[in-house]
């Protein structure tokens, strides 16, 4: 998830440019929050196997 894995066409280190960290955080939060909600609901339901 880091931007440290970005690189240029010649395979060298990342070129100087705008930082992608805020964009990366936003993008992963965008998909991570709904997934966390789905997993939370799932965990509640799955617990019934042991308590139901």
């Amino acid at each position: 998830m880091t931007t440290g894995e970005s690189s240029t066409a010649d395979g060298g280190a990342a070129a100087a440019g705008p930082s992608r960290v805020p964009l990366s955080v936003l993008a992963w939060v965008w998909v991570g929050v709904p997934m966390a909600y789905g997993l939370y609901e799932l965990a509640h339901k799955a617990a019934q196997l042991f308590t139901g």
Partner: peptide, 19 residues
């Protein structure tokens, strides 16, 4: 992608469609 683009930005793009 412009120079310096992180490849870790592509999985969330894919996830937004697949989710």
């Amino acid at each position: 992608a412009p120079a310096g683009w992180s490849r870790w930005l592509v999985p969330p793009a894919a996830l937004s469609v697949h989710l």
